[in-house]
Computed example of a mutant assay.
Amino acid sequence: MTHICVAGGTGQVGREVVRQALTLGHEVSVISRNPPASGRSVDNDGATYFRADVTAGNGLSAALAGAAVVIDCLEGKSGRALRNFADGGTRLLRAAHAAGVRKAVLLSIINCDKVPLRFYRSKADKEDVYAGSLLETVTVRTTQFHSLPVQLFAAGAKVGLIPVIKGARFQTIAPAEVATALLEAALEEPAQELHRLRTMGGPEVIAMGDLAEAWKRHTGSWGRLLHLPLPGAMGKFLREGRNLVPEQRYGSETFGSWLAKHADSL
């Protein structure tokens, strides 16, 4: 049994990491700014939740005490969390080192250093922090989750127009399979190379229009597909296929099978 600390363990991937780690019999502590209320029944019963904040450093020592490895699933999408995303990584790793943690695993995004957008840049900056850590680290870059295009399609469908970016293809991946990969990295034997970078994508590459049609079939949406150009750096990134890694496919849950599994919540 390994004591694993999951930073961001109440988020989309973090919840899956916690669930799978508990199923495997590991001891799990969770860092969250908003942990479940005391006594509340949650999916991941058996984990110990700590109210902690990497942007300020509060509560980290208690959450990391006794852990052998920390898995960082934190997100910084806007505001203070985005501004301090890389600095938060520095605080987490320093606290982990002080607590005697031997390894840190970071969840990141494929080719985040190739897009001059703030969100992607923050991911790349945090990768640099991990690459300079005193701990053994593994950075796992993944393609977009299945839920990303679903969010875009659902938002557009509210006004009857489902956005499709011209020339865009995706290699989406299931958050549960990303969680599996993070745990594999966390539990593997120590390596000679102190800092390692891995890249993985979903099992298939699909045009965005085909993803939209699949989503319409599963949801019964009557929205009309609206094919739009996406200018700027992000549009170029997608048109060039830099969000894809067809040679590094991981897992077996396709976009269609994920939609079927989550049909009740779409």
Rank of each mutant, 00 (worst) to 15 (best):
A263W: 11
K123W: 07
P246M: 06
L211K: 08
R141K: 14
G79I: 04
L266R: 01
H218A: 12
K126D: 12
P231L: 07
S122G: 12
H3L: 14
S38M: 07
G88Q: 02
T55H: 04
G59H: 00
R196T: 14
D264P: 07
R15G: 00
G46P: 03
T23G: 13
L194E: 12
V101R: 02
A174Q: 06
L228Y: 09
E75F: 07
D264T: 12
E177V: 13
I110E: 10
S78W: 14
G167Q: 03
G156Y: 08
S32H: 03
E213D: 15
F255W: 02
P163L: 06
L226V: 10
L183H: 01
V105K: 01
A263L: 13
K114G: 12
L183W: 01
A186H: 02
A233P: 10
G25R: 02
A67L: 08
V115K: 06
A176L: 11
L148F: 15
G76Y: 03
L106Y: 13
G232Q: 04
R121P: 07
A181D: 04
H146I: 09
R141S: 05
E189S: 14
A157S: 15
R242V: 06
S38V: 14
A191E: 11
D53L: 06
T2A: 15
P203W: 09
E193W: 06
A81D: 05
A98V: 13
K216Q: 11
T48S: 08
G201T: 07
R19S: 08
E27N: 09
H262L: 13
D113I: 06
R91W: 09
L183K: 00
E16W: 00
A95R: 02
R19E: 10
A181M: 02
W258P: 01
A37F: 09
I71R: 00
S252P: 03
G132A: 14
V105N: 00
L230M: 14
T2S: 14
F170N: 12
L22D: 03
G241S: 09
T143C: 08
T180V: 15
A154T: 09
D43S: 08
D264S: 11
L92T: 01
M208A: 12
L225N: 08
K126M: 15
K236P: 03
R91A: 10
V42A: 11
E127M: 04
R40E: 14
D72G: 02
D125S: 15
T143S: 14
V70E: 02
Q144L: 09
V138N: 05
K158N: 07
Y49D: 02
T142Q: 04
E16D: 08
E184H: 10
R40K: 15
T143E: 05
M208S: 07
Q20C: 07
